[in-house]
Write a protein that binds this DNA or RNA. Sequence first.
DNA 1: TATGAATGAGCCTTCATTCAT
DNA 2: AATGAATGAAGGCTCATTCAT
Lengths: 216, 216, 216, 216
Amino acid sequence: MNDCSFIPTGPMPATTAARRTPRSQHTGDKRDLILKAATKLFARRGFFNAQVADVAREAGVAAGTVYLYFQSKDDLLISIFERTMHEGLEAARQALAGVSDPVERLRRLALVHLERLGQDRDLAVVFQVELRQSTKFMERFSSTLLQDYLHAIRDAVADAQTAGRFRREVSPTFAAKVLYGALDEMATNWILSRRRYALAAQANEVVDLFVNGMTT
Amino acid sequence: MNDCSFIPTGPMPATTAARRTPRSQHTGDKRDLILKAATKLFARRGFFNAQVADVAREAGVAAGTVYLYFQSKDDLLISIFERTMHEGLEAARQALAGVSDPVERLRRLALVHLERLGQDRDLAVVFQVELRQSTKFMERFSSTLLQDYLHAIRDAVADAQTAGRFRREVSPTFAAKVLYGALDEMATNWILSRRRYALAAQANEVVDLFVNGMTT
Amino acid sequence: MNDCSFIPTGPMPATTAARRTPRSQHTGDKRDLILKAATKLFARRGFFNAQVADVAREAGVAAGTVYLYFQSKDDLLISIFERTMHEGLEAARQALAGVSDPVERLRRLALVHLERLGQDRDLAVVFQVELRQSTKFMERFSSTLLQDYLHAIRDAVADAQTAGRFRREVSPTFAAKVLYGALDEMATNWILSRRRYALAAQANEVVDLFVNGMTT
Amino acid sequence: MNDCSFIPTGPMPATTAARRTPRSQHTGDKRDLILKAATKLFARRGFFNAQVADVAREAGVAAGTVYLYFQSKDDLLISIFERTMHEGLEAARQALAGVSDPVERLRRLALVHLERLGQDRDLAVVFQVELRQSTKFMERFSSTLLQDYLHAIRDAVADAQTAGRFRREVSPTFAAKVLYGALDEMATNWILSRRRYALAAQANEVVDLFVNGMTT
DNA sequence: TATGAATGAGCCTTCATTCAT
DNA sequence: AATGAATGAAGGCTCATTCAT
């Protein structure tokens, strides 16, 4: 068994904390407001088709105000990514706290992942679609959140193998990609589907199939 | 067993046929040239960052010429999608010809899928990344190729269930998504990875895992 | 001999006086601070490229504070001009006090002119470059300081002609422009030169050449 | 005596020629049209207050067309400068051709200088005012045309000194600045004056004064 | 068919100015 | 008097698309 490396056990990351501390509550609200508006518009119109002025209008601020909180339009997308990532990591940390059984860890990870995306469709669209639109963002995406996520899965798989519960001939890294890919596909399908079913409910099904496939 | 619904058994679709018949061989070449150039640039710079003029230059034609073959910049992306899709369906049709074993059908489908993407990295990038950048394209994507593909998988799974080889409590549609998601993830990982391994080699591994998970 | 027309013999101009009287010493300091900061930034970045916020930061005050002392960004430039002009006129008045020899008056005028510019490079840049950037400022400039200055030179030249020391066939107004132009060029050259020589030292040389040219 | 170093004796400079050759007459006209319009607007409104769209409208083209011929708004100003400089150098070359008397050379230089500026008031304004508005342009200005010009004057002065016609105790470089400054001032005065007198007529007067001042 | 110069709508971003605190 | 967050008009520049040749 190992400690899940992708979970910061200390306090919240500096960036997020640093940004909030020096600003008033009012200011923090405005930043959030803009980020929420950007998420909504990027999701519904696409990053390139959404205009900064639209984001500002949606947030109820002037166009120039956006640039008091963000450096550029790109920075909006990156900030959505980073903020969501930090929150996601925190949620995962809490979900895994005290859980040592590797299969249960996989179950929790999958559930938290789909739950979070399933709670905010706009956010899910930005993550599943917009953030992947150019290699620039894609690489940023894949080199951070994805890595942490895959490592967490991989470690749980390796633990299960060590415990003799999973077949050893499958590479844990490969298995992690398979599981992540399946979950990711569930999310993308959910976004594109017109039916409004509960995304999180599929977490267990996916893990069941995966665990069955990995079991000796 | 079922007829593989996603494979057109009739003549080529009207759009492609209509365009090719009245035009000279030379013209067909130019259209191909432009499409190839667009694939390359969309893949390397992203759809919105690639300019029509760049595509034209890459293809060795004037900017205006692009509009003799395509209606708009969007049409370029759509045409890449459609052409590739038709070729892919044809390849799948040939790969499945005479194969009745459902598991083998799954294996062939996965192999053809990854083989095709693995042969042309630029094309793979356009399919895995660019085509998904806006819900506009994404919906077109998911309503056609993806449907055909998922149906083909679903049917094979259902056949395997009917034959008693796969567990019946798993919905074939759901299982199809899982398998497709895993394959899709392999493709996306391959694109983002710096290592130049053979993508197609992973087809069997993914199917192995899937089949094991589905087997009674 | 004549009274040097460009020297105000009455009280200080209303604008400056009006502003200073009702305000505290502390306030006057802040106004000076802002003006000094504006001079520095206008000189180093150019009027249009220097932002009001930069000026405020340089002065150590908030952006809004600038507008408590000045009506607009233009007003900053105009105020620099007016303040410097008033100080320059006062300096000239003192330099010419009790000097009746017309050639010596020219010498003193030239010296004071170049001395003042030579003491503050930033101020010199604003005067020689920024103030002339648009006809709006240029006309203001040429209709006031320049006129006073040219009149002072012209009168001294006329005096010298009356005294039989300068050739009479040269128009005093024309001669004044020539001398001013030569001095102005010295100032502009000094600003643009990388060498840090004493600008004021050239005053005598210029006047020597001029006097020699004018002498019968 | 020496050959006036700043005058290219060969064919026109490559840049100007190179730009015109590959383009059609029609194209060359359009570039000229835009440059003429820019000169007019920069002169009348100031560089920063003139909008690119205004320049385009004045030239009778669309806004985007400006960017087919120039890289940026700055490039417009630089191009005005460079083109005028090349033309001016060519005019000077022709004016000095076959003239060996140094004083006559000075006379011709001064005449050509003021004649050219006096022929196109807008161009004169751009040169005397707009081009000097920021150190960026100013340095470009002073490091090229001004240098060539000052060198030409300096060389003529040195020749006159060698010939025993000018006093030797005055540095030729210094004398050149004085003469240039006087001419420059004439140009600036002419621009700012409301009277529409002939600028070129002052060339001789300035040179007379200068020569008299330099003569032994 | 092919060209590529021309178009002009559109958008990100800046920054002088205001005003609630 | 002082602040600095907020404003929003303005403008430089891009680029998909057209059309005369």
